[in-house]
Structure formats: structure tokens, C-alpha cells
Computed example of a mutant assay.
Amino acid sequence: MLDLTNFDLSSIPVKRDMIEAEKVAHVQLQNPLEHALLVLTKTGYNAVPVLDLNGRFCGIISKSDIVEAMFGIEQIEVDKLYENTVEDVMHSDVPTVSEHDTLEKALHVLIDHSFACVLNQDDEMIGIYTRREILKQFRNEFYEQQSK
């Protein structure tokens, strides 16, 4: 049985285990939807961060956002992939965490999202924190307790 009474979620900083921004697939506001769909398809991700030209976080775009944008009244309108930009269909109201937040806050965000963008004080994305990282923390705590 995993005993989490001594596992202090409020003492582990998000920044310690985040994936650095340089390693994160993303798109920019003015990219056409075609480009975003290619990035999502080639990486295998369902969603990626959207950044402006200065690296500031603007939102998230997903495959389902793009597909939904292509639906016309009676048919799928593939031309919308070339006519619309990421900014037209992205979601900007997504939760983020700051570089100073702890695993406790990230846990609350990641209940409903597969990743959270980690922002600095200037809203620049410095990385992402994923559900996978949270699960690894719990796994490591479990194995640590098993070895005692």
C-alpha cells in the first residue's frame, strides 16, 4: 500500500521535472491550420501549445479543434485548412502553471488536462509539465517506500 503521508506535494517545484520549451512541439498564432494539423499528426500529439513570435504563451490547439473548424453545413470544407489560422480556432482559456508553482498545483490542473504549460513572469513558455511526470513522481515514491 502506498503511504503518501510523507510525500509533500507542496515542496516539489514544477520547474524541477518539466520538459524544457526547446523540446516541446508548438505552433504560432499566424500559422495556417494546415501547418498545425501537420505538426499534430507528425508528432502524434492531440494538442500543442500556441506561442506568439516572442515565445509568449497564447493558448492550445488540438486536432479536434481543427477538424471541427473544417465542418461546414453540409460537408467538410478542406479549404478552411488554408484559409484559417491557428489564432482563429485555438483555445486561450486554458490553465497554466508558473515556474514557481509546486506539484500540488500541477496535480489540480492535470486532472482535466494532459499537460500544463509552465510560464515565467513574462508569460513566456519555458516548458510543459505532463501527467506522465506526476505519475512518475508517485511511482518513484512507491518504489522508494517498497525499498525501505
Rank of each mutant, 00 (worst) to 15 (best):
L37Y: 14
K136S: 14
L135F: 15
T43N: 04
T85R: 15
Y143W: 15
I12P: 07
F57Q: 01
Q137E: 12
T43M: 07
M1S: 08
F142P: 00
D101N: 11
A106L: 10
R56G: 08
S92V: 08
I111P: 01
D122W: 13
A69L: 10
E22Y: 07
P32Y: 05
P49R: 11
M18P: 00
T85G: 08
M70E: 01
V109M: 01
F142V: 02
I61L: 11
V78K: 15
S98A: 04
Q137W: 00
E104C: 02
L29S: 04
R131C: 06
D122R: 12
D65I: 12
L107T: 15
V48F: 08
R16A: 13
N120L: 03
S64E: 10
P49G: 03
V67G: 00
L110M: 07
S98E: 11
R131E: 10
L37W: 14
N31S: 03
D93W: 15
V86S: 05
G55A: 09
G127R: 13
Q145T: 07
S92P: 04
L110W: 06
M90Y: 05
S10V: 06
P95I: 01
G55W: 13
G44K: 03
L2W: 05
M90C: 02
I76F: 04
K23S: 12
R139W: 03
V67W: 09
N54Y: 14
Q28N: 13
I134S: 03
D79M: 09
Y143C: 05
L103V: 07
K80V: 09
Q137G: 04
Q145A: 06
L53Y: 13
E87R: 15
Y82G: 00
F71C: 08
V39Q: 14
D3E: 05
Q137N: 14
V50H: 10
R131P: 02
K42Q: 12
A25C: 11
A47L: 02
P49E: 01
D88G: 07
G44Q: 04
F71I: 13
G72L: 04
V27T: 12
F115D: 01
N84R: 15
L40G: 02
H26M: 06
L9F: 11
G127M: 05
S64M: 01
D123Q: 14
E141L: 01
M70D: 03
L135W: 10
T130A: 01
F142N: 11
F57S: 02
V86M: 08
L81S: 03
S114Y: 13
H113T: 03
D17L: 14
N46K: 15
K148F: 00
I12K: 15
D123L: 08
F57D: 00
L9T: 10
Q30V: 12
G55S: 10
A25R: 14
E34N: 04
P95E: 00
I76N: 02
A69E: 06
V67P: 03
T5C: 01
Q28Y: 10
D17M: 12
L135Y: 12
V97T: 09
I111A: 11
L103F: 15
G72P: 00
I12G: 07
